[in-house]
Design a protein around this nucleic acid. Structure first.
Lengths: 166, 166
DNA sequence: TTGGAAAGTCAACAACACTGACATAAAGTC
DNA sequence: GACTTTATGTCAGTGTTGTTGACTTTCCAA
């Protein structure tokens, strides 16, 4: 390995600007691939990435409130509302008034919404699966570690909240 | 490690949907962090992410043509032109007519452009460096492998073209 | 009962992508 | 030399997704 050397248990990293730049470019190019498949599907249905993100997290945490979703996505409520509005009107998302707190709206996917979610995440999981297989299990662990370390603290909180079952 | 097991040299991957979803979410949250620092700097200067990307690749490959940049960035010429126009007008990028082929424009950063590039990439490299240190050298290798495997073939070509000196 | 949180909406605006059409110059080909 | 293709640039229009700011309604909780 060119970027590291081990010396008596201690590990040294030789991080040249060149290597850091490669990491930056890897993120850029990989993210394009990461979004390419869902983008094609979304286009067919007349939706965009913002719809995908909303659908993803509603599926992940059924019944989450608008405020929670807002903070996970890190956008303004006006921006989310536009997206949520179309998803609700189109019958993909259901907004239920809270039983305890009647101000809060709890979001759920309808069967139609779940169908689109499966279509989207299926494509994305396929790509992720392929990348994992190609790179191997050690690589996968490292991949997740670096990404987690790259997040802003608040985003890391959200990420860790949606923790593995494992 | 929960996602892998080693058995006599052979390594098996147990890729549950849950684990793939975590990978997807890691990409989403990490990409936000990845762009957060440059976004703040760009905002101060009145530029956006598109300007950053152009500056990055012009710096990486000085003298590259518009067509090459177009294909690396994967956007339309109209979209790139808007961005390039402002960078040239503001004196950050220089467009030189080709010596051999006079149709081609070769792009270079001016000293001012290089200064902004350093500011942007400095912030981004710092975050990348921090993540690398936290995750360790083995993680770094895996990170790059998975990302590379995730790219579309054409993007991977571009990525590999800008290969390490190492 | 009053303060503030949660949700929703209206309007305006900006960044950044797209399509389609068209213009110009220069290179390559027959 | 005529013709085609390539490289670049530009104009106009459109769509998605984000922003700020202002304002309302609902309703929990002290």
């Amino acid at each position: 390995m060119a970027d590291s050397s081990t010396q008596g248990g201690e590990t040294l990293l030789f991080l040249t600007d060149e290597q850091l730049r490669k990491g930056i470019e890897a993120m850029f190019f990989a993210y394009r691939g990461f979004t390419a498949d869902p983008d094609r599907i979304l286009d067919k249905h007349g939706y965009g990435r913002a719809h995908h993100r909303a659908i993803h997290f509603i599926n992940r945490e059924p019944g989450l409130t608008v405020t929670t979703l807002l903070s996970v996505l890190g956008v303004t409520k006006q921006s989310l509302n536009r997206v949520l509005r179309t998803l609700i009107d189109d019958g993909l998302v259901e907004s239920r008034v809270g039983r305890k707190d009647k101000r809060a709206r709890h979001l759920h996917l309808t069967p139609t919404g779940e169908a689109l979610e499966r279509e989207l995440s299926g494509a994305q999981r396929e790509r992720m699966r392929g990348a994992y297989r190609t790179a191997g299990p050690q690589a996968v662990a490292g991949f997740r570690q670096v990404l987690e370390a790259m997040m802003d603290p608040e985003m890391r909180r959200h990420y860790q909240m949606l923790k593995d079952d494992s």
